[in-house]
Design a protein around this nucleic acid. Sequence first.
DNA 1: GAAATAAAACCGACTGGTCGGTTTGTTTTT
DNA 2: AAAAACAAACCGACCAGTCGGTTTTATTTC
Lengths: 194, 194
Amino acid sequence: MQQRSEETRLKILESAVKLFSSRGFNAASVDDICADAGISKGAFYHHFKSKQELFLALLDGWLQTIDNAIEASKDMTVPETFMQITEAFPYIFETANEGLPMFLEFWLQASRDEKIWQASVKPYRRYHKYFTDLIKKGVDEGSFVEVDPELTSRMIISTAMGLLLQSLMDPKGAKWEKVARDSTTMLVNGMLKK
Amino acid sequence: MQQRSEETRLKILESAVKLFSSRGFNAASVDDICADAGISKGAFYHHFKSKQELFLALLDGWLQTIDNAIEASKDMTVPETFMQITEAFPYIFETANEGLPMFLEFWLQASRDEKIWQASVKPYRRYHKYFTDLIKKGVDEGSFVEVDPELTSRMIISTAMGLLLQSLMDPKGAKWEKVARDSTTMLVNGMLKK
DNA sequence: GAAATAAAACCGACTGGTCGGTTTGTTTTT
DNA sequence: AAAAACAAACCGACCAGTCGGTTTTATTTC
């Protein structure tokens, strides 16, 4: 039974998310994570080659989540998909708000490494491809006016990223959830054929 | 004459910008900065209380730059101002691209400190106020349709921040300058009364 | 205006502590 | 018993900040 082994791995992953998001990637040391997971450093380095590799493993998990969400919305119409995304906003916003700081911190200091850069950029590119395809489909279906899918995708992602950053910088500066909803609505309305 | 003193201070500031932007805030050590500036650690700590205080001094300088730019555009009409901003885009984009990573890195790890958070959030709030006022003025003047200045300002900043982040993450993923230009044009066109 | 004094600027070795990662040894699993 | 999983002590590099002392600059005194 390697069940115990798998459990240890999961415990490490859980503690890592918890500490990375609460303290930041650098501030949360390997020792901290081990302590929180209730295991030793030896166990940690048995499961992960390095702190960075641990983070990459977390990234993989998120990528999986993205792919699942994309897969789940495969059979909807384009406007329906956008509706669903808008509805899921509070959850997405919260999750992203938790994950963005640690991702940024990690990325800012590690992105000079080619391999790590590749891994970090992957989720972003996947999102971009997803939105581009979605908008293209919407245009082809005739539910959207003729927009440039590439550009529009970038703009949607900009809005999301930018709002996320703003809400992080100045959490009490606005009712961010409402701002996010209004922005999305405006963007989608601008595309919808009437 | 404390001219020499002032020169040293400036040398530190210069080296700091250079190293913070090329290596990142954490990776650039105080020793590195001293070496680059050609001064000793003692001189450094004579001029700045800490590495953080040094960064806050840099922030102050940028804030000044923002204020000057705002001041300079005081007598233009609103559409003229937007035109000018759009034209200055390449320069703004480049500068921001250089400064954003170090700012983010600093902010991510230091923002738990109330004083530092205050200082960091200041430039952002100033921009937001600037755009809000500008749009309000545009609406009052009658050159813009009735939009919500608060929301629109957030959206403009989102777009800028988001594009900046995207261009940092995936520099070769698109012609970012063009994307930025197109996005701005779209946003402004959406507001202009025809 | 030259010597004496005070003050500011500057130097660089050193400290205390952190942290990622390694090594060596022990327990559990199969 | 061999291999995988885990524990615990340990290593070495790094780095922000300190401190005693030196040099330069400004001010006062005679």
